[in-house]
């Protein structure tokens, strides 16, 4: 920030989204937005570095020469690191009371895939339940005029989003076969094959690359707090059958 290298410390919590403080200026920063909320740099924002949340196996395949953050030996010895079922345990924790009622009929702790796009008339946001997208394998959608592809990796857990336009054409994608995750990713327009990095590997469009769209995995209560105007996709619910069929009114002859 302004040529100064800031180092951050965990320093508080705001409705279950943490606050950090930098050693250099003593400014307080909100984690999810990177926004300075109090102190000398109030109103400034840290630049978001594009990131990916994927399984280690998927990442290692793509980045065999990548580096992994080492364990802190002391913490590992004390067995303080989160267990593998950490996400499941967190899902039962209470959520903060939220000023505005939660819309969308979603549980506050539903894990969402959130996307915000900067448009001419400000940013537009949309959120999808992570579970629904993973179950579908491929999800075609649109936000602020941009056609989107949400795709689940063959690992059945990692999700990425792309702008599904190539060469000016909007493509529709499917996973061929009976499995939502392992089938080949095809576009219906040219039947080219695509990989999880958004690259066409075979077919007419081979060599083309879709533009990545940043997404954030976040709990619904937190996403809606920072994106109050968000559109939301509700998880699919089977419609209940009416208990009694409506009785047709007798029609006068």
């Amino acid at each position: 920030m302004d040529g100064t290298r800031l180092t951050f410390r965990l320093a508080g919590i705001n409705n279950q989204n943490f606050i950090m403080r930098d050693d250099q200026t003593g400014t307080w920063w909100q984690q999810v937005s990177g926004m300075a909320i109090h102190g000398p740099l109030k109103g400034r924002r840290l630049q978001l570095v594009p990131h990916d949340q994927v399984t280690f196996a998927t990442w290692k395949d793509e980045q065999p020469k990548g580096q992994v953050l080492k364990l802190d030996e002391q913490i590992a010895k004390e067995d303080e690191y989160a267990s593998a079922d950490w996400e499941d345990r967190m899902s039962t924790r209470p959520t903060p009371g939220i000023g505005t009622p939660l819309t969308g009929g979603l549980e506050p702790r539903t894990l969402m895939i959130g996307i915000t796009l900067d448009g001419k008339s400000g940013g537009t946001s949309k959120a999808w339940p992570h579970n629904s997208v993973v179950a579908s394998g491929v999800w075609l959608d649109e936000l602020g005029g941009v056609p989107l592809l949400l795709v689940t990796s063959t690992d059945g857990r990692s999700v990425r989003a792309f702008d599904r336009r190539a060469d000016g054409d909007t493509l529709s994608f499917v996973r061929a076969g009976t499995d939502a995750h392992s089938g080949v990713l095809l576009d219906l327009e040219t039947l080219s094959e695509w990989d999880f990095q958004g690259k066409a590997t075979k077919g007419e469009l081979a060599g083309q690359k879709l533009a990545r769209v940043e997404l954030l995995l976040d709990y619904w209560f937190d996403w809606v707090k920072y994106n109050p105007k968000t559109e939301v996709v509700k998880p699919w619910q089977p419609k209940r059958k009416p208990t009694k069929p409506p009785i047709p009114k007798p029609v006068a002859p």
């Binding site: 949340q53 690191y81 857990r157």
Partner: peptide, 20 residues
């Protein structure tokens, strides 16, 4: 199967294991 948060820039790539 563990999730990592990954960043990449100019050929460098770092993964941050979520559990850590």
């Amino acid at each position: 199967d563990d999730l990592v948060m990954a960043v990449a820039r100019q050929g460098a790539a770092i993964a941050y294991p979520i559990r850590q």
